[in-house]
Design a protein around this nucleic acid. Sequence first.
DNA 1: ATCTATTTGTACGTATGTATT
DNA 2: AAATACATACGTACAAATAGA
Lengths: 252, 252
Amino acid sequence: MPPASTPSKDKRSRPVKIAEAIKDWVVEQHLQAGDRLPSEPEMIERFGMAKSTIREAMRILEAQGLVKTRTGPGGGSFVHEVSEERARALLGNYFYFKDLTVADIYQLRRALEPELAASLAGRLSETALLQLEDTVAAYAEPAKTVDEEREQHIASLRFHAILAEQSDNDLLGFLIRFMANMLSDLTVYRQLYAPPNYELWAKGKDYQQRLIKALRYGKSDEARQIMSDHMATAQHLMESQEAEVARRFIPE
Amino acid sequence: MPPASTPSKDKRSRPVKIAEAIKDWVVEQHLQAGDRLPSEPEMIERFGMAKSTIREAMRILEAQGLVKTRTGPGGGSFVHEVSEERARALLGNYFYFKDLTVADIYQLRRALEPELAASLAGRLSETALLQLEDTVAAYAEPAKTVDEEREQHIASLRFHAILAEQSDNDLLGFLIRFMANMLSDLTVYRQLYAPPNYELWAKGKDYQQRLIKALRYGKSDEARQIMSDHMATAQHLMESQEAEVARRFIPE
DNA sequence: ATCTATTTGTACGTATGTATT
DNA sequence: AAATACATACGTACAAATAGA
């Protein structure tokens, strides 16, 4: 047995270690988004490693969305706030291997969307409310074709994304937008014998309009209840269409 | 204005494009975790680019957790299922810039944990139930020191992680474990005038024991209610301790 | 609009490390 | 133990992008 002092060999490659070191350094120095990282030659100097090694390290950080790099004078690498799109894509990679079902997503939506609605009642600006009304206007008429129906479906998901924007809970907001995004990416295999369902369309529209009213007039419990019913209906619609979550990597 | 056919210049660097190309190729070929990617020399050949460029591309995929690379004969790069740890770390990077509050996390926990409990009632194996009981045993006695209390807190979060393991909803499971992890990483600044709260400790223990009973005997609604109360208490405890989410990058 | 200086981006060859047989 | 097959790391030369004069 080796003496306790023997450092257990760290198998991670040098670029990975350098990337970790830079992350730690960023935290220690309290660097913020926009702050400059040392230049390539400086890194080569400070870490005593080859250019290509340093570059691989920067790619790792870039892939994680933590730094951006620019060429030219005044260029270099900069700390960058991870964008929501990037975070969505990276999290989506995880679920690529998990084949989520529509039911899985709706189990969460049914718990979270009503909570969101309730927490926003009476706290939305008139601008936000108008934006919601505009979105609902996109499906004032029942869809005549399958394509049109798909468009409306995506618009109605945008409704939820807009609502989520307004939350001051970043975790809740991110999650709801993540799910709306997953559902937008659905591949819908409509059953041949299932024509567009007018009744469900009418219900969905009605729910969102009533929801806007409840939100505007601060009726928190009402908003929660409407959203809850709305989710139940939406889930039923999805499942009747045998929708499936597409297996692909989400582009950033 | 350039003719429509002019391809708008793609600013992404070559390694990034190669990484994207490989991802697309993996999807097209229906490659699965464990499947082999072309060797370095092959890539150099096929993409007509230098070794360092190819290597940067592989680092990107590796950083996202999508491939693993081994040296030696029979080595090379392989498609890899993104691990939960990796996904947690990557998502954590996003929230590093967002300063979540304990209240934010609890808004979600209060909606999701009861849902999880309800959906698992009567569906747990005896093994899983025993595991839960073991975990609760870790805080059979009230904590005497601040350190001990912290240990118990982490054990009680593990309780929720174990429960989440049992869900067949991967999205719900991931999220609950993600939140439990964030809370484990808390920096707790106890107020000097706030001694360990025996009453809250007793309540928490009681909740989890009653919860196990409800889960074992399939009392779904009861499990939901207990979890709901438990969350309310836990949130109160956290906030009374002025807990804050630590600002650091989550290591994988 | 052109040139120039600065900084990253790409190429390529060689040498070294590592795991399998 | 030696040969093999693979990734890992290095260092130099040159290309491309961009800001500023």
